[in-house]
Nucleic acid binder design. Sequence first.
DNA 1: ATACATACC
DNA 2: TACTGGTATGTAT
Length: 866
Amino acid sequence: MENRAGSTKEENLLSRMALNDNKAGMEGLDRDKINRIIMEASKGSRFYGNELKKEQQVNQRIEKMMHQKAQITEQLLQKAQAQVEKMTSELEKSRDLSRVIVHVDMDAFYAAVEMRDCPELKDTPMAVGSMSMLSTSNYHARKYGVRAAMPGFIAKKLCPSLVIVPPNFDKYRAVSEEIREIFAEYDPNFQPMSLDEAYLDFTDHLEQRQSWPESSRTHRCRSRSNMPADESDKTEEGTDLSPVLFEDSPVSSEGDAAGSFEQFGTSVEEAVREMRFRIEQKTTLTASAGIAPNMMLAKVCSDKNKPNGQYRLPPTREAVMDFIQKLPVRKVCGIGKVSEKMLNALGITTCSDLSKQMALLSLLFSETSWHHFLQISLGLSSTHIPRHEERKSMSTERTFKELSKPEEQLSLCRELCDDLAEDLKKEALKGKTVTLKIKNVNFEVKTRAQTLSYAVATAEDIFAVAKDLLKTEIENESPQPLRLRLMGVRISAFVSSDGKTPMQKSIISFLQLGKRDHSRSPPITHRKPEVGNLCDHSVQTSQLVDDPPVENGQKQNKDFWRSKPRLTGEEPQQSFFQRAHAKRLELQAAQPSPQDEGCEEHVPVVTPNNGTESLKQANTDDCTVQDLSENELASHVQPHASTSGCGTPAETFTCPVCFAKVKTTDLNVFNRHIDSCLSDAAKREDEASGSESDLDPEDDHRKSTVVTQKKEKPRDLKNEASASGGELDLGRVSPQEGQQTLKNNLVSLNEVDKKPVALQQQSSLSRSPLLTCPVCQRAQDTDDLAVFNHHVDLCLNQEVLHEFGGQTAFTGKPPAVKNSFSVDSGHPLPRHASKGKSKRRDTPSSPPSKKAKSLGLCNTIDKFFR
DNA sequence: ATACATACC
DNA sequence: TACTGGTATGTAT
């Protein structure tokens, strides 16, 4: 069973394990030595073993491919050649060189931010991440072969003096906001790809720019006078305007300490240079950019003069083709390790090889693949930047120290479901497919999915599916335990948030009108065009009512919480309701002031460890303001100047229903939020009067505030449409943390069984200070939700400990102060139990006592399965 | 529809 | 001691 053939495999493995030096900053280093160290550090590990295995798979794929290649006759090849040529000429006809696409990419983003904020790091090799994984490294560290996606402990072997700084995502997000404000002024529809990267279409900007006066193209250098009084630890920094990373900055300030100006021309290069300049002035960080007639080329170009440089590929066919010829295929976005290796096996390393071999490739690869290759070889790709697409899936996964006990695995699974549900709620999404992902201690990954006939969104519903999937895996492995190192839950196949799409549309179109009035940029119009039916709610609503759960002829659909019959019947009310809010909305739009302050809300750069941070932040902001006013940009053509700060795609919208601020890049997200609010409200109206256990939107807002505050392990990353940033994103859950949180999870597990009722609470307007604990049933004399939640958690935990008789590993752990009710927004009863293949289902309220199925599982587990 | 692989940051 | 997390998409069945 062991790999005896180690030595020969090692060669192959280099392509997987070895240093990836095709990135900037990695020239002229001792590859062999570095690779030796990497290999040495890896060899024998389970990770290595799995890499070996994967490598063999790739090799087999290649073998198969070579075998196929051997079968290809000359005739076939010629036929293919003809087809390729035909297609080539068609593609050629569609070549569009008229757009000016720019790809901007911050240099060593995370690392640069950390260096900026901690001068001690400037001259030392450093990386952001942990001993387990680095997300990026500074250029100094790259000289040692230390780079993104490398585990810290290996990096340390390469460079013992390496300083590893834990990531501060909030900070990076804040900086990202700053640069996006600038992006928006050049292209309000720019597309962020991550925190540090974006595509912009400069075409329109350039057209306008031609008629701009010099004053509009003049920008202030950050001057010392901008700095706040406190000189203490920023003496060096205050005067040093040169970029943190590199001494040879082309945009270094002209001596003039009082603050000098830099003027830019009207050409593309000048415009892009100006943008980079402004980024640097504002953030003290540098960016690189690529200018080209399409996205793929722009992306390659941005790498060309990295760091702190830019490259323009002229928009001529000759220039493009010339550029492409020499380009290694690996540089092209979408061609990774494996594709590269396969192409290499065919003797293809550059794009010119690619075009020469297109006929062959068309016979060996799938249509999509070779079409892609053909486009690349012709230097073609998208010339317009696509609007941000609807999200297709949402997931949460976590790596931890080996987890083998089924009950712990289920606990964790439940916790993941909780987290996922929470995230789903933020975007008001529901999906039909639940996927469980597990990775065992040998790094082997499995996914197991189940698609329901209806969409789910709550932790309970998701867990109902996920636990079955997990259970099956546990059983399959039995009597051996599943030895896991990672678990994840994903949901996909989303359906319209709650079947009220028509309403959403009408209210949104209302929104649009309102917004246009005070010229918001980007105008909300870049949503997907919505087709008609704006007023005919009843028709659409009934269409959109989800198909009821069909399985097994069960009856449960009747009182299924989602069942829309009720709502559909209430149609007129709904419309009325929505109209009312549309009015409110209109009013809001008319007087933008109150919520425009909302954009303040993007992360006020809280850096507990670094007092200078906030000062600097304030400072850069000052700069911007001055910048604008002094140059009278605002009054000039620039339609976006006035909105910078709030008008970027990454802005904060105020929900017209609950008045919560929704921070998002994606209008769809906002739309869904409104939708969800409306649905909540409708439901409230529906269930009128009575027990009043539902939440007011206001309350909802408050509640989620509580949740956020309480969350010790913010997984905020995800809300960012493009969450990752820097060179590579980093999970920040250490194995230890994983274990830790697992313990906390009992509370929520317990929830499954107990299904605690919704927070009993009055509407915000007349809230009674008395809240009743759903566990102990005692009124709590507080109106502070945080306090109340804490009490409930304690209660729940008591119960849990009791049930477990203190015999499990969880006993004695302090309860997580976890908001037990954050997910469940007022549905007092469980919706349904699991469905699924061979799934017998119990009434949710059935006692958890049913034990001893014929499974080889212990009682404890069975309890979870219910 | 499901599983797995590849890719990107 | 220690090799991520989130999303999309392609490939194969």
